[in-house]
Amino acid sequence: MVKTTTIELISKKEFELIRITKDILKAVEESGIQNGVVFAITAHTTTGILVNESLACLEVDIEKKLEELVPTFDSYNHNHFLPSYGAIGCNAPGHLKSMLCGNHAVFPIVDGHVVCGNAQDVYFGEFDGIQRRKVYITVMGE
């Protein structure tokens, strides 16, 4: 059996880490699936799904390191006029941070429970806010 639900988020900053662990647990519980896997998948190309320990200090470190690796202000080829947008694509850093963080996370489900380590939380990473965003939670199993 496969069940997919969609959660909608509105980021409030250009860079933001939003915890979605509870949404995943809820989707698994409501699916009724006892054994299988659950995926959290972002619908966007300037966002990411991250698994990490939910500490404010680490959130700052993640933001700082990603900014060092992919500075907001730099000479990106994507900064040019895109006729289909009627504007420039000046969100290259969002695309590259998205690439570094990946578009999904996956966890096993055993006896109706998501199996994850004590320190593990799931974040939706916004790298091109402020926007309305979607995350698909797909529960697969029996």
Binding site: F73, S75, N79, H80, F81, I88, C90
Partner: peptide, 8 residues
């Protein structure tokens, strides 16, 4: 409408 980054 910029043709490169807004700051440039």
């Amino acid at each position: 409408v910029p043709m490169d980054s807004p700051e440039v």
